[in-house]
């Protein structure tokens, strides 16, 4: 199935979760926030949050300059 990740279409397997997606992207869950369909996903729910076709995900990071 296809999701939209940071504005770009991406194929993920059936049963993919936020956790498995981050693993695929080699992103440690403690270093990013994940927004799914305009709502931040709680870190404790990454493993249980299954992705659905058409989901819009954003990997949110902080901006460090000042």
């Amino acid at each position: 199935m296809e999701i939209v990740l940071n504005g770009e279409t991406r194929a993920v397997g059936e049963g993919a979760t936020v956790s498995s997606l981050l693993e695929e992207l080699s992103l440690p869950p403690t270093r990013v926030a994940v927004e799914r369909n305009r709502v931040i996903v709680r870190k404790t729910e990454y493993g249980a949050t299954e992705l659905a076709a058409g989901d819009r995900l954003e990997i949110v990071t902080f901006v460090g300059g000042g």
């Binding site: 270093r31 926030a33 300059g65």
Partner: peptide
């Protein structure tokens, strides 16, 4: 939101990535 300090390679500053003053 993000429990740990981002590592340096993921965290460019203004001296690396630039900044338009009006944005600041």
């Amino acid at each position: 939101l993000i429990p740990e300090i981002p590592p340096r390679k993921d965290a460019p500053g203004c001296s690396e990535a630039g900044i338009v003053g009006a944005a600041a």
